[in-house]
Simulated assay, not measured.
Amino acid sequence: MDNDLFPLLQLCDSNFPSGAFSHSFGLETYIQEQIIVDKESFKTALSVFVDKQLVFSDGLACRLSYEVLESGRGMDELLEIDRLLFVSTLAKETREGNRRIEERMAKLCMDLYAIPALGEYLYFIKNKQGFGHSALVFAFVAHHLQIDKEKILSAYLFASVSSLTQNAVRGVPLGQTDGQRLLVEIQVKINEAKNTIMKLTKDDLGAVSPGLEIAQMRHERLPVRLFMS
């Protein structure tokens, strides 16, 4: 068995206390508007989220960050990716959600692995020279543990999809079985997304869907909410 399998399983575990269970990243807006009403309508929305948000924002940032660490080019480029992620995220709740998830994940990963570069990243965030995003944390952990770039990218995409699916089980609501069926069906989409990300450049970072951004911005005005974003 690969030695890097266990850290990947731990990072992708729904019990990993990152706080992602508190966020829908705009999908709750579609639930309340009854655009998402069942497994198939959620699968459609989730596929768009993967193709846009995860490919052109979070996933691409994870890959770019890993490559910066791999090349040893330094913290300045990582902070630039961090900044681009922040300024290209228009919805305040989504920016704050990403920051909170990063904060929890980074502190826990520091306790688990004591990664010097991650500690430096947290120092810059604490001193208001960075913003924070889980995509970079995944890259720090993967590079430190010498996990293959494509493996960690697939793991990051799956962890994001799995978290949103579990939230949909509560929010739509979906049955647990439908949630697990969806995670099987979406694996092809995740692999396609990973392959697309591997072909993109830094210039593509932030090219997300306007419809999704509007849903994320409208979420903060919903009269009743299960999720923070």
Rank of each mutant, 00 (worst) to 15 (best):
N15G: 09
N15E: 13
F16I: 05
F16M: 06
F16N: 02
G19F: 03
A20N: 10
F21P: 00
F21G: 07
S22Q: 14
S22T: 04
H23F: 15
H23R: 13
F25S: 05
F25H: 13
L27P: 10
Y30E: 13
I31R: 06
Q32D: 08
Q34C: 11
I35R: 13
I36A: 02
I36F: 06
V37A: 09
V37Q: 14
E40I: 07
F42P: 03
F42H: 03
K43G: 05
K43F: 14
T44N: 11
L46W: 06
L46Q: 04
L46N: 02
L46V: 10
S47E: 12
V48L: 11
V48A: 11
V48T: 11
V48Q: 11
D51S: 15
D51N: 14
K52Q: 15
L54W: 08
L54Q: 14
V55F: 02
F56H: 13
D58I: 03
D58R: 10
G59W: 00
A61E: 02
C62T: 15
C62A: 14
C62R: 03
L64G: 06
Y66D: 01
E67F: 06
E67K: 14
L69V: 04
L69W: 07
E70I: 05
S71H: 09
D76Y: 01
D76W: 00
D76V: 13
E77A: 13
L79K: 05
L79I: 08
L79F: 03
R83F: 10
L84Q: 13
L85K: 01
L85R: 02
L85D: 00
V87G: 01
S88G: 01
T89R: 04
T89I: 09
E93I: 01
R95C: 07
R95D: 06
N98F: 11
N98E: 12
R100K: 15
I101A: 00
I101H: 04
I101Q: 02
E103T: 12
E103Q: 14
A106M: 03
K107A: 04
K107V: 01
L108T: 12
D111F: 00
D111W: 00
L112N: 03
Y113P: 08
Y113C: 07
P116F: 05
A117N: 06
A117R: 11
G119T: 12
E120W: 05
Y121I: 03
L122E: 09
Y123E: 10
F124M: 08
I125V: 15
K126R: 15
Q129I: 00
G130V: 10
F131E: 07
